[in-house]
Each structure stands twice: as C-alpha cells, then as structure tokens.
C-alpha cells in the first residue's frame, strides 16, 4: 500500500474497536486494537494496492483476539473466548447502560455466533469473507450470524432491561 497508513486508522479505527469490543468485551478490546494496528502498520507497505483494507484489518484483529483469549486461558480456568459476562451495574446512569448491556449479551453468545455477528454486522463483511476468517462455509457463517442476532434480540433489551438468560 502506498497510501499513508493514517488513512486506514481514520477510516477503520472505530469499526475495528467495535469488533474487538464485540469479540473480547470492552476491557480487553484496547489491547487487541493496539496490537492489531501495530502489526498492520508493520505489514502495510506489503499489502497489495487493491486489497480490502477493512477485511484485512478484521482478519488481523481476529488473530489478535484469539491471542488475547489464549493468554487469558493460560491464567484462568475459563476456556471460552470471552469471560463470564459482567452483570450490568445497577447504579450506572441510563445512557451508559445499553452499551454495557450489549457487550454482556454479546459475551453470552457461543463463540462462533459472536464472531459471525461481530464480523458481519459490526464490521460489515459479507458472509464468505466472514467464513474465510472464522472457518467453515459461508452458509454456516450466515446461519451463525442469524442465530446470534436472534439470540441477542431475546437476551438484550435496548430499553435498558437486560436479561442474560434466554
């Protein structure tokens, strides 16, 4: 890539942060974001001019998220990609609650569903691209994303009432 890397950060930084938050939860998302853009920066000059930058960044973010989750697994008992979802704080002001609730609801999804929701709905990648990142067929990625969204709708109420149990 000959374009200044700053453009990639400006155009895709927010989406990648949202993807990291969706996959790992807000606490570990920052590390994954930083690692993603640092390794993207190093590799930037070798990226072909016609590459899909967003898909490329999300692919790197996926690998970094897996690394973060593995590191966590070495230090703790849980083996799932996301730790137990923290219960939403009761005393949080109203405007903060929906987001916290959304992360919690995402965290409660099975890994594959959460990844497919993150890469399709949050990152906006088409299902075949999602399948290339998470493995499996595009049809399976589509199904996992749809199942994940259906489950989110039943577990997460945007009005602020959050139930983690289906």
């Amino acid at each position: 890539m000959k374009r200044p890397f700053e453009q990639a950060v400006t155009e895709h930084g927010a989406v990648v942060l949202r993807v990291c938050r969706s996959v790992l939860g807000p606490d570990e998302a920052d590390d994954a974001w930083s690692e993603t853009f640092l390794s993207a920066l190093r590799a930037w000059p070798d990226l072909p001019e016609d590459a899909n930058v967003r898909a490329w960044l999300v692919t790197i973010a996926h690998r970094k998220a897996v690394d973060v989750a593995r590191a966590r697994a070495r230090h703790a008992v849980p083996v799932a990609l996301v730790p137990d979802a923290p219960a939403p704080h009761r005393d949080q002001p109203e405007e903060a609650l929906p987001d916290g609730g959304l992360w919690a609801a995402l965290a409660a999804l099975p890994d594959k569903q959460r990844l497919c929701v993150a890469y399709h709905h949050v990152a906006g990648l088409p299902h075949p691209e999602v399948a290339r990142i998470v493995g499996g067929t595009p049809a399976a990625a589509r199904r996992a994303a749809a199942d994940g969204i259906a489950r989110l709708r039943s577990t997460y109420a945007p009005e602020g009432r959050v139930s983690l149990h289906v």
Binding site: E95, L102, V122
Partner: peptide, 30 residues
C-alpha cells in the same frame, strides 16, 4: 427489534475520545 443491529453497526458515544487515546498510544509505540 432492529435496534440491536443498529447499535452493533453504529457503536457508542464514548468512541471518539477513546480512539484518540488509543491512536496516541499507537503513535508512541510505533
């Protein structure tokens, strides 16, 4: 019910400041 998808796509309000801090840390490390 599409509010869920909308939230996923559009993100949260605290993003801009947060990204600025992450960006500054990235420049320092790089």
């Amino acid at each position: 019910s599409d509010h869920t998808i909308q939230l996923l796509e559009s993100g949260t309000n605290d993003e801009a400041d947060h990204l600025a801090a992450l960006h500054a840390a990235l420049v320092d490390r790089a």
